[in-house]
Simulated assay, not measured.
Amino acid sequence: MSINEPDNAASRQATQQPGQQSAEPLAEDASESAEMQRDAETQDDSDIELRPSSVPWPPLLLAGFAALAIILGYAAPIEWPGVDDTPARFIGLGIGVLGIVLVVWGIVTLRTHDTTMLPDVGATHLVTSGPFWRFRNPIYLGDAMILLGAAELTKNIWLVGAAAAFAALVTKLAIVPEERHLERRFGQAYLDYKSRSRRWI
């Protein structure tokens, strides 16, 4: 080879336009990005299998909406649209008491099966007995019924709104992730249970 003839590497470098990037770094960046995305998805799958959520949403939502409804009941009261008589009060009391029964029954059933009742901790057993035979979320249903019963007894219409808002947000933030967690954890056994039970009523 003549000393005046540039080698291949020098020739490629000389012909590369200013600002032009090699395809190799771009390919490496794309590969790293795809790998990071796969790692993130794997981490999400692993997290949902370990626990449904990192935040205990149900008690936070229940306490927050109840407190807000009580404050609004004093600050911006709205006239109760229904009747205020003894039968109506007994109906309200019955709804509230039934809600309390569901909550207590659900907690006792979970403890009997040695699994957690905390919404941000992974389940160790699939519980399908007690109130869970019919309802997949008897504790949350009971919470909403307690708010409705309190609304009838106190004639605070804001508590009705609190019950509706609690049901909507607890479904999105707690129930849906819990269902994904239980499906990952227990597979077909949970899907079979899900097919014969109700999310709410």
Rank of each mutant, 00 (worst) to 15 (best):
R38V: 06
L148K: 07
V97E: 04
F90I: 14
D44S: 11
T116L: 07
I3M: 08
V103L: 02
L61E: 06
L98Y: 12
S53W: 01
P25A: 09
V101T: 10
A67N: 08
V97R: 12
E5F: 05
I100K: 03
Q20G: 06
D47G: 04
P58N: 08
D47E: 11
S22Y: 11
N8P: 15
W57S: 01
R134L: 15
D143P: 00
A165V: 13
G187N: 01
L182R: 06
E24F: 14
E41N: 11
V176N: 04
T86Y: 01
R136V: 02
H181W: 09
D29K: 10
E41A: 09
K194P: 01
R180P: 02
E178V: 00
S33Q: 09
G96K: 04
I201R: 04
P177N: 03
E152V: 15
N137I: 05
L126D: 06
H113E: 13
L141F: 12
I146L: 15
I146H: 03
P59I: 01
Q37P: 08
G106L: 06
T109M: 03
G142R: 12
I91K: 02
M117Y: 12
G122P: 06
D192H: 00
D29P: 00
L126W: 10
T128H: 14
T154A: 15
I95Q: 01
N156C: 14
L98R: 11
T15M: 12
E32W: 02
S197L: 02
G64A: 13
V104L: 14
P58Q: 11
A164I: 15
R184M: 10
K172V: 09
R89K: 14
V83G: 00
T42L: 09
F166H: 14
L93K: 02
S31G: 05
L26N: 08
Q21G: 10
D120Q: 14
D114N: 15
G99Q: 10
R51C: 00
P59V: 03
D192G: 01
D192P: 00
R184W: 00
W200P: 02
A34M: 02
I139F: 10
A189R: 11
P138C: 11
A27L: 13
V160S: 02
I107N: 05
V108W: 11
L173P: 02
A14Y: 12
L159C: 08
D143E: 15
V170G: 07
A162G: 10
G161Y: 05
D44M: 09
A30Y: 03
N156T: 13
W158D: 04
D143A: 15
F90V: 12
G73C: 07
A123N: 10
Q17C: 09
P18L: 01
A27R: 10
E183K: 11
W133L: 13
A9V: 13
G142N: 08
A14T: 09
G96S: 06
V55Y: 05
G94C: 08
S46E: 05
W200F: 10
G122L: 08
I201K: 00
S197Q: 01
R184N: 08
I48G: 00
T112G: 14
M36P: 00
A34F: 05
V101C: 15
E35I: 04
G82N: 02
G142L: 06
P81H: 02
M1F: 07
A151S: 14
W57I: 01
R89F: 09
A165H: 09
I95N: 03
R12W: 06
L102C: 09
P59R: 07
Y140A: 07
N8K: 15
V127T: 11
A34I: 03
L61S: 01
W133Y: 12
A66H: 03
L50K: 13
Q17G: 04
